[in-house]
């Protein structure tokens, strides 16, 4: 019996092992190597990279493009995360209640998530086309001349964020499921107290979903800092005027287009730090709301 008990942790570790090995080999080790490469002159082509100390860091400090890139990423997160959350939460709450035809709306919301990024981006090239794209035509209906979406720095950023508002299926599903778990009687009790739909949203639904919303915000921040690569690559290739030169795009350019593998590694490290800082700020900001009591 005691032998049985002492073997139990071992069994647990045995089951964990495949995952642990994969995480170690595919994530932790490359991340560490990445930090190491950042201080070499590795080009991705040379066989034995040499340690160059802080040469890359000095280059980075003087790199105006990197500043543009960090700014583009920051603006993108500030724009896309709230929009994506708003869409996922709004649609999730609207479509959580069972009503006739509801499932078709839910399918419609999820569908763009299934479409491959590149296909969605190509689709958006058409949507955003200033001459015959439907978006400008719709704007034309209300008398607006429309935008040259992808050739103006401001609207290009909006355009990328706009495209990323559609693949929100996972967040949508999480909100849908979380809302359905809430006790209907709480809403009846609130209705008896005279709490209308907006009062219920403000006083019940949002506070009760707060832990889930926080989870989604953190997850979406991480995701949003990275998934803008495909739309930026297909729609704008980092242009115009570096407006969409998001960190992943810049890293790709440096590492693989300019053969600056070591420099790319350094910026990747910067991306990780930026991500960590944004999430720490997020968690600090919500701490006073006592979401995670």
């Amino acid at each position: 019996m005691s032998a049985d008990r002492s073997r139990r942790p071992l069994t647990a570790w045995a089951f964990l092992a495949p995952y642990a090995v994969a995480v170690g080999l595919l994530i932790a080790l490359p991340a560490l190597l990445n930090v190491g490469y950042a201080f070499t002159d590795h080009t991705g082509l040379t066989r034995d990279p040499q340690f160059v100390g802080f040469a890359n860091v000095r280059r980075m400090v003087a790199d105006g493009f990197l500043l543009d890139s960090v700014e583009a990423s920051a603006v993108h997160v500030a724009l896309a995360v709230p929009l994506r959350l708003l869409a996922a939460v709004g649609l999730g709450l609207l479509l959580a209640a069972p009503r006739p035809g509801g499932r078709w709306f839910r399918v419609a919301v999820y569908l763009p998530t299934v479409v491959p990024d590149v296909a969605l981006a190509v689709l958006f090239l058409w949507v955003l086309n200033p001459l015959y794209g439907p978006l400008n035509q719709v704007l034309g209906l209300v008398g607006h001349p429309g935008f040259t979406w992808l050739s103006d720095p401001g609207t290009a950023r909006v355009a990328v964020a706009l495209m990323l508002v559609f693949p929100i299926g996972e967040g949508f599903l999480v909100v849908l499921a979380a809302r359905r778990l809430l006790d209907g009687r709480l809403y009846e009790a609130a209705a008896l107290e005279g709490c209308g739909p907006f009062g219920q949203l403000r006083r019940l639904t949002l506070p009760l979903l707060a832990p889930v919303l926080l989870l989604l915000a953190v997850r979406d921040t991480i995701l949003t800092l990275q998934v803008n690569f495909v739309p930026a690559y297909v729609l704008t290739d980092g242009r115009p005027a570096n407006a969409t030169l998001y960190l992943p795009v810049y890293i790709f350019d440096q590492a693989f287009e300019f053969s600056g593998f070591a420099y790319g590694a350094l910026i990747t490290t910067v991306l990780m730090v930026v991500t960590a800082v944004v999430i720490a700020a997020l968690l600090l900001a919500v701490r006073r709301w006592r979401v995670l009591r």
Binding site: L186, A189, L204
Partner: peptide
């Protein structure tokens, strides 16, 4: 089941 608001 009393329907108390769990977050309050």
């Amino acid at each position: 089941d009393y329907a108390l608001y769990p977050h309050l």
